[in-house]
Design a protein around this nucleic acid. Sequence first.
DNA 1: CGATTTTTTGAATCATATCAACGTACGTGG
DNA 2: CCACGTACGTTGATATGATTCAAAAAATCG
Lengths: 194, 194
Amino acid sequence: MHEQLIQYINNHSTTPLTESEVELIKNYFLLKKLRKRQYFLQEGEVCKSAAFIVKGAMRQYSVDDKGAEYIIRLSIEDWWAVDRESYTMLTPSIYNIDAWEETDVLTITKADFVQLNSINALNEMARRLDENHASALQRRVNASISLSAEQRYSDLAKTYPEFLERFPLHIIASYLGITPETLSRIRKQVVTKK
Amino acid sequence: MHEQLIQYINNHSTTPLTESEVELIKNYFLLKKLRKRQYFLQEGEVCKSAAFIVKGAMRQYSVDDKGAEYIIRLSIEDWWAVDRESYTMLTPSIYNIDAWEETDVLTITKADFVQLNSINALNEMARRLDENHASALQRRVNASISLSAEQRYSDLAKTYPEFLERFPLHIIASYLGITPETLSRIRKQVVTKK
DNA sequence: CGATTTTTTGAATCATATCAACGTACGTGG
DNA sequence: CCACGTACGTTGATATGATTCAAAAAATCG
């Protein structure tokens, strides 16, 4: 269970974890099993834990007054699920996070994460993750103002093909900021174009 | 000149700068004066420096094959201008950054910034900045998929009223991902609604 | 002032949303 | 293992919001 996380941390830092650090991590990261559709975070709550996904798929989304859901982030194995803003600032989140499939996550609270700040590899990994996340968000903002729906879909299909296999198309449509009907028509076009 | 930066750093960290740290910062941050429309970063270059804006206004944007500009970030006094991805990874940037007005910036290269990593206040400030930036990007992604053009404009007018005073409306329109004509019509509506 | 940039307006067009219906697949309980 | 309900995907007709193009008005700058 934890081996996957250890591996992940080592892959994302320059200095490998020592044995004692590995032990610390095993003690601090707690396994949590989520059923399909189970909330990990609900709007209005503080995002008390960050989750490393060992197995499964999760989504982060906002909900408007009409009940419509807007997917702002999708995550699968070896990704993290967390509302960074709420987690770091300890403020109520405006987002929901739930499991789309049966999902196993390793969770850690912010307080515990701070406890582990002696672990350099973990800090380095966290910093890199944040940088990558910020870059990805910036690109997505850029895409949303500069590309058509069709281009955004092609982009997604190229950059994150896993998403198309793991999530239904209406979730993908929401992630792209379009309706399921529009996505369906776009896909029909793309196929016939070839 | 540097006092403003010193002040800013102290405002954005819990531990105030010591006198010797202040001296270090004065030595490492270099003043650069930019004319209107002068590039600070051009697409394809590595963003070698980060810029703290002492006075003036800058924009970060991408350009498509037709020459259309898409504003992804606007910054004024006491903000930073930098392509974080290019700056940290030392990769060629896909964005341009230029001065919209006569602008004075204090710049620091990544290598020099690393030299200053003994300054806790500076590290803390940088971390907070990154967090805030990431949160803002996330909110913008959320807005782009969940709100209408009119709502996004109202949001902007409420959150960053300074922008409306400093930048012409076609820049604001681009930032919102709409055409200047659409923004003009939206504004007409908003006025008559009241 | 004249030149340039910015903003507005109108008309035609295009992209996407909406609403409604239908087909399909899937999984669960009987 | 079948039948039923729910979730998912597609299609068509229509509506709407935003773009495009062209032009003119207004503001700004040297």
